[in-house]
Computed example of a mutant assay.
Amino acid sequence: MGEDSLSGLVSELKMAVPWGHIAAKAWGSQQSHPVLCLHGWLDNANSFDRLIPHLPKDFYYVAMDFGGHGLSSHYSPGLPYYQQNFVSEIRRVSAALKWSRFSILGHSFGGIVGGTFSCIFPEMVDKLILLDSTPFVLDSNEMENLLTYKRKGIEHTLQVEEAKEPSRVLSREEMLQRFLKNNSHVGEECGELLLQRGTTPVATGVVLNRDRRIAWPEHSFDFVSRELFVHSIKKLQAHVLLVKATQGYYDVRRVHDKDKECVFLIIDKLKSVLKERFQFVEVPGNHYVHMNQPHHVTGIISSFLQSRDSTPARL
């Protein structure tokens, strides 16, 4: 498919929520079947700019900015950024767009939020695509740390609120270099793309848009037990495609990244529970393969979206 197949149809959306608005960008026709695209931790809707133009034209792709990210409003003072809040944002967006059934394409944290939503509202999601992601995070490596994360999350929020420091102004180049240093899997071109939506120009440079209360994913993630994970995926009505990058991440906390047991356990359980409704594909690339080398994943995602078997087989 040509690179410009959908690029001329991009529009910006703003959906009202009690604390302000959720921003999104859309490709394609509203009359087509909807696909909600969910970005990773600290990223924004531009995460999908290099992927969606290559996907089938007969879908309506909406990439939202989670609250406190990109062009979406920050949460009200005192309100924390917990995973459940992000899950409820999907329900708010689908209600605003009057969607009763749609597909989800989620990268990293977006896949975890989208996966959780798909188990809580199973009748609403026909297809779930996970890009270097899993539908939940297991607690296997984290049991000792879970209470510490909750404590640190609260303390960090209070510190940011108390400090009331103005957003730091940096030159565009300095902002990019800091961003690339903190995101080793993002190339320079993709880093610039994410910062386009993730920063606001001011007189002397740029400032980050994201809410500084959002700092570490482990403060917001809901880690679940194996039992809760298996119980939850049994609720799924969606067909699930999990695309794993060979050089991608295997754990929320990078200190455990060499331990691949959790991811393989999740894949094994998805296979045994969903059977023919689950597909697992490995592709060469790192955690941002959908941005760095979109051609590695476009064919797989396109085939999955266009496949007709969107309802579970009845025995």
Rank of each mutant, 00 (worst) to 15 (best):
E165R: 13
M175L: 04
L146Q: 07
V160S: 08
S184H: 10
M143H: 10
V137G: 01
K164T: 06
F136Q: 03
V137R: 05
H156T: 02
Y149M: 04
E142N: 11
D139P: 00
P166W: 03
S133I: 08
T157Q: 14
K181N: 09
L158S: 10
G153L: 03
R168V: 10
K181V: 08
N183M: 09
L176T: 13
K164V: 09
R168D: 01
N182H: 05
T134S: 04
L180V: 07
Q159E: 07
M143N: 08
I154W: 08
E162F: 12
E142L: 01
E162M: 14
L130Y: 13
P166R: 04
L147Y: 05
E161G: 13
L146V: 07
E174L: 11
R172P: 02
S184L: 13
M143V: 15
D132M: 08
L130I: 04
F136R: 13
K181C: 07
S133K: 07
M175N: 00
A163F: 01
E162H: 14
E162C: 06
T157E: 12
L176R: 06
D132T: 09
F179N: 02
R168Q: 12
R178C: 10
M143R: 15
S171G: 15
L146R: 10
S171Q: 00
V160D: 01
N183F: 08
K150G: 13
T134L: 07
L176P: 00
E161C: 09
M143P: 00
E173T: 15
D139F: 03
L146A: 08
L131P: 05
D132K: 06
R172G: 01
N182S: 12
G153A: 02
Q177E: 14
S133H: 08
N145A: 10
L147G: 00
K181P: 01
L180I: 04
F136P: 01
N183C: 03
R168T: 07
V160C: 04
S167L: 15
T134F: 02
E155V: 03
T148K: 07
S133W: 12
L147I: 07
L131K: 01
L170I: 01
L158M: 10
S167Q: 14
Y149D: 00
Q177D: 11
K181E: 15
E144T: 06
E142A: 03
R168L: 14
K150S: 06
D132L: 05
